[in-house]
Structures are given as structure tokens and as C-alpha cells.
Simulated scan of single mutants.
Amino acid sequence: MYFKDRFHLTKDQNRRFAKMNFTNLVYTNARFEDINTTLSQTQTIMDGLGVDGVSIDNINTLVQIKRGWEFITNNDSEISLNLEKQINTIVTKNDSLSSGESRTEQARVNIGSNKVFKLDDVIIDEENKFLKSLMASDISATEISLRLMYHNMRSQLFGNGNKCTATLIANKYMIDNGAGLINVPLNLWPKWNELISTYYKTGHLDEILEWSYKNIIQGVNL
């Protein structure tokens, strides 16, 4: 299947579209960190106010996710591993002692039913080669972004905040190329979790790639 770009915006138009949707983007991305605030609570926190029943730690994490979106929306740098590290530094500022540093220890990911996916070591040279090859691929910006996002989620490049970081770097490329945004609506969260777990276990990208192309690419036709 050829995953052509579904939306065709200028970079500035895509930036404005992202900024108009910051609250919803932060609201959904917060689920990666097991934060279950409502949309209105998320907006209140993004406005700089506290919310009863939401811990200071969760408030701080939401604020950093918002800052991550602000960073990628206004940044003109090309996609690089260093840029991914900068994003991770922002989103894990209050949650990790190794914020922005590549993972150096073996790690495991719980994929449900008491099953664990064991992660390979992060090899920086290999990650740079992957990134260089992907960026040079003769495929759409949308497909590049999805492949980058899912590779980074499965590779777990950092000690914490990997899903958020992977989503942000992928959206940076989407915005730069006017291709819209990648965002998983909460009503599709159960199916997405099922697909990402299968991808972790098998390393086979086709199913989640095709589903994501059909369901989680958002934009406007002008």
C-alpha cells in the first residue's frame, strides 16, 4: 500500500493547525504517562492553574508535554537524534534522572497479560544510520513520520518518556512538511494499544502502519 500524504499544508499553516489543537494534543498524549485528566482540566493546567484532585507531579508532566509541543512547533532544525534528545529532555524534565540521555541499561516493556518485551541495547551509530536512511527514503512525509514514531517507540531510546518523545519528533516532521498531525483519539486507544503490543512482540510494522494511516492522521483541507 502506498501511503501518500493525506493533507497538503504549508509549514506555517500546519503550525497554526497544531497550535489550535494544543489542548487536545496534550490531553491525549498525557495518556502515555497514565494521566487521565479531562479536557477541561488539561486546559486549566495549561493556563497555569492548579486543579483539585490532580497531583503536582501530573500537573508538571502536563506542562512539560505542552512545552514539548511548543518546542517542535516553533523549531526549524532538521530531524536528528540530537533533536530527539532535546525533546526528551523537555518532556521528562521532572520524571527522570537521565532526562535526554540515551538508554544505557537493558529495559523491559509490559505488553499485557503478564508478558514482557525485552529491549535490545541502544546503539547510537545504528540509530543514526536508521534515521539517515529513513530521511532519504522515497516515500511520503506521512509514512516517514509513522515509521519514525513506531521505530522509536519500540526501540525505547531513552530511559523514560519514549512514547511522548516519539510522537513529538514524528509530528515535527509532519508539521515541517505540511502533512497534518499524528494523534490517537481516545476512542481508538484500545485498538491502538492492541496493535502496538503486537508490534512490540513481532517487530512487524505493516498492520499498525496501515491502521494508523487510516485512523490517526489529522489535518484540514484548504
Rank of each mutant, 00 (worst) to 15 (best):
D138Y: 14
G112Y: 04
I90K: 00
S55D: 04
T104D: 08
N58Q: 12
F71V: 02
I72A: 01
D57N: 11
I111P: 13
E78P: 10
D76M: 04
A136W: 06
K132E: 14
I56G: 03
V116I: 15
E84Q: 10
S137V: 06
E33F: 00
A136I: 08
G100Y: 10
T104L: 11
S98L: 11
N82F: 12
R67M: 06
D34I: 01
S133F: 03
V51N: 02
N82G: 14
I79D: 00
E127K: 13
Y150R: 00
L148D: 05
K129S: 13
S113V: 09
R67C: 01
D34W: 01
S133I: 11
T73D: 04
E126M: 08
N110Q: 10
L157R: 13
I79E: 02
G112Q: 10
S77V: 11
N94Y: 12
L134C: 09
T44M: 14
I35F: 08
G48I: 04
S145K: 01
A107T: 13
L134W: 09
T61Y: 01
N36K: 15
V63G: 03
G50I: 12
E84P: 04
V91R: 00
T89F: 00
M46W: 10
L131W: 07
I87P: 01
I35M: 03
D120C: 12
F117S: 09
E33L: 01
